[in-house]
């Protein structure tokens, strides 16, 4: 199990992903005419015999990919998820699973996290100790008194400062991307491989048969009195609005061609992560992406 890459890696270090570089591996790529300087042992003698001039066998080199965990650590992530746990716990859990898969696969894992005001980048490195560090960083950064969330800031950071092709796994909450964020996502999707895991937000209106609690919006600090959320009209309107928003979100990610999966709580993280990986590999999420043969080696 690992994060599938549809496009070839640009890194020079050996790994298990298909690379844009030619080299030695088991994946045969092409034959070409011998030019001085080529290694003699690369000459395909049989082909040379048939062709009459020396031909060189070329293989696709296998290289490492770099996995970047793109995480929101603003105030929003310290709020409750649908399951009642803090969203950041679920995010850390999911990032842990993905990072572990990547690091077992031999990939480097980096982290870019932040809020609406600042982004922090921890460069990719290999090893589980490094992953542990990243997860601790995420856990420590998201707090209720921190700055507000703004994933657009992190998307901008990646586009602006990070070079090379990356496997980006974004973990954020159930925000609805605005036009600016959508354009950033589109550019990101063009340059990198993007997987998106959404941690679902807490239910705001009361669910039938559930004792409601007073809520406080971490964004505005405004309280939502429990008696209001029980009101039948409010609940109906909220349910309709939720359906509408869900649909728009789905449409946005579908249109962008980004595999997106939702997770509700920590029991559900593994299923969601695997579903996301499978969705990404099979490209079942988007009809717009052109079919491109997978080129993983090995």
């Amino acid at each position: 199990m690992f994060i599938f890459a549809h496009r070839r890696t640009l890194t020079l270090l050996d790994g298990e992903y298909g690379s844009v570089f030619k080299g030695r591996s088991l994946d045969f790529d092409e034959l070409r005419a011998y030019v001085p300087g080529d290694e003699v042992r690369d000459i395909d003698w049989k082909a040379t015999a048939r062709h009459g001039s020396p031909l060189i066998k070329r293989y696709v080199a296998v290289r490492r990919h770099t996995v970047l965990l793109l995480m929101d650590t603003g105030r929003n992530m310290a709020a409750q998820a649908l399951s009642g746990e803090p969203k950041k716990d679920i995010a850390v859990h999911a990032a842990g699973v993905l990072g572990y898969l990547a690091s077992r696969h031999g990939d480097d894992v980096g982290l870019l996290h932040g809020n609406a005001t600042a982004s922090k980048y921890l460069p990719p490195r290999s090893g589980e100790e490094h992953l542990e560090r990243l997860l601790r960083e995420v856990d420590a950064s998201a707090s209720l008194d921190g700055p507000a969330s703004g994933i657009a800031e992190q998307l901008d950071y990646v586009l602006r400062y990070l070079k090379g092709r990356l496997l980006i796994v974004a973990v954020a909450d159930e925000f609805l991307p605005d036009a600016h964020t959508q354009s950033l996502l589109r550019r990101l999707r063009g340059r990198h491989e993007v997987l998106w895991l959404t941690v679902r937000d807490a239910e705001l209106a009361a669910v039938a048969g559930n004792r409601m609690q007073q809520s406080t919006d971490v964004g505005t600090g405004q309280g939502i009195p429990a008696p209001l959320t029980v009101d039948a009209k409010v609940r109906a309107a909220y349910a309709a609005a939720t359906l509408e928003r869900e649909k728009r979100r789905r449409d946005v990610f579908h249109g962008l061609g980004i595999a997106e999966e939702q997770t509700t709580g920590s029991e559900d993280v593994l299923t969601s992560v695997f579903a996301l990986l499978e969705k990404h590999r099979s490209r079942a999420f988007s009809s717009r992406t052109s079919p491109q043969g997978g080129n993983r080696a090995g």
Binding site: A79, Q80, D201, S215, T216, V218, G219, A236, A237
Partner: peptide, 26 residues
């Protein structure tokens, strides 16, 4: 203050006209 659960994107509920109406009545 009484225990209150932190939630994000509260405006999804508070911006609804039905909620505003209920809030005024409350």
């Amino acid at each position: 203050p009484p225990k209150s659960r932190p939630i994000a994107h509260g405006e999804r509920l508070t911006d609804l006209p039905e909620y505003q109406h209920a809030l005024r009545r409350h």
